[in-house]
Design a protein around this nucleic acid. Structure first.
Lengths: 196, 196
DNA sequence: CTAGGGTGTGACCGGTCTGTAACTTCTGCC
DNA sequence: GGCAGAAGTTACAGACCGGTCACACCCTAG
């Protein structure tokens, strides 16, 4: 029931999509393989034919998350061509909207919290993808003409990461509600600092 | 073996201490009751005689974490009497040291990430205790003569929260390494803002 | 000495978890 | 139409989970 047109999607992609959704909502450790296959309208054997293990599925999910994030970055560039500062402001706005809409934070960060084993295969993937995101933000800040681009990018990163986890701890009315004001203030502060 | 003097500690306190330690290291969902009782040198029945359930134990652990945090706050006051700005700087330094030493973040925030059920009994406790911490930081900022005390406190909160989760994602050499510089910069910026 | 409360022991329950095996059914392509 | 490969089904293995039970123990207070 209610499947309809979506049925044409390959089982692998259905599994990937629903797993990502369920992991996001209930946490990685809070979702079992059976729940994923059932929600994806398939079965356990098919899942294990496409993915070596749950860990493999987790990693593949994180990659699609990063892929979607990159698509949004590209959208910023398309909507504000040759306006790096506009792209940075779009980033702030978009990210702040996400904070209001979604109660759970960053899938990568959440995964890092949940998967506590130091040698978990997903850990290096998380580090890799998170670092790529940081690099992209640093590049944007640098292109926007900010002197201390790394420091601004890192500051914005921590503010965002903090806002997302704070939202999960104390809710949307907590400190995370001030994210836009903070981010814009920090950006303005860095733009005025030709001295330093 | 290796117990010795610590044997005089009551089972309840041993359970509480080791549970807190294991939860911190491996995450709440990553530690079973059996692992706790074994590490605490006791057994499951004794645990359940002192705590109604695992959820109850989790909540009690979080309370001791908050209690310890409050003790550190009191220490700041004792070491820098009548010097609110000194207390704020001590907070920054202490918190930054914690970032270097400990690879896992805030137990409350981690618990909020792990316990995804909206009505989980620990969630309201987390919210309550986190709010209390925020209030204390706001009070400190206000007493230090900062005009926009709430905004500064919230900014510092998000920076810290973000630094702790970033450390788990990309390691100690990532953005979290700049926490002190960011925090001091933000504080200085708020002190100079009598205008605004 | 004795009574009683706190503690330890081992078995057990029902449930869930990841992952596998053998077999059947469907689907797309020549 | 028929064939190969993908997908579905059922059952199962082995481990672990939170939680309970009946019972034996020990230590201390009276």
């Amino acid at each position: 029931m209610g499947d309809g047109a979506a049925e044409k999607v390959r089982p692998r992609d259905r599994i990937l999509g629903t797993a990502r959704d369920l992991f996001h909502k209930h946490g990685i450790r809070g979702v079992g393989i059976d729940a994923i296959t059932e929600a994806a309208g398939t079965n356990k054997m098919t899942l294990y034919r496409h993915f070596d293990s749950k860990d493999d599925l987790i990693i593949e999910c994180l990659r699609t998350v990063a892929c979607d994030a990159n698509a949004i970055w590209n959208q910023f560039e398309a909507e504000h061509p040759n306006d790096k500062l506009g792209q940075l402001q779009a980033w702030v706005r978009t990210v702040a909207d996400g904070l209001k809409v979604d109660g759970r934070g960053c899938d990568m960060a959440n995964a890092a919290v949940e998967l506590t084993e130091d040698d978990h295969p997903a850990r290096q993937v998380i580090k890799e993808l998170k670092t790529a995101q940081r690099d992209r933000l640093v590049g944007l800040c640098r292109d926007a003409g900010i002197e201390q681009a790394e420091l601004l990018a890192d500051t914005l990163s921590l503010l965002l990461e903090g806002a997302r986890v704070s939202r999960q701890s104390v809710g949307a009315e907590g400190p995370s509600a001030q994210f836009v004001r903070m981010a814009e203030g920090v950006i303005a502060s860095f733009r005025n600092t030709a001295r330093a």
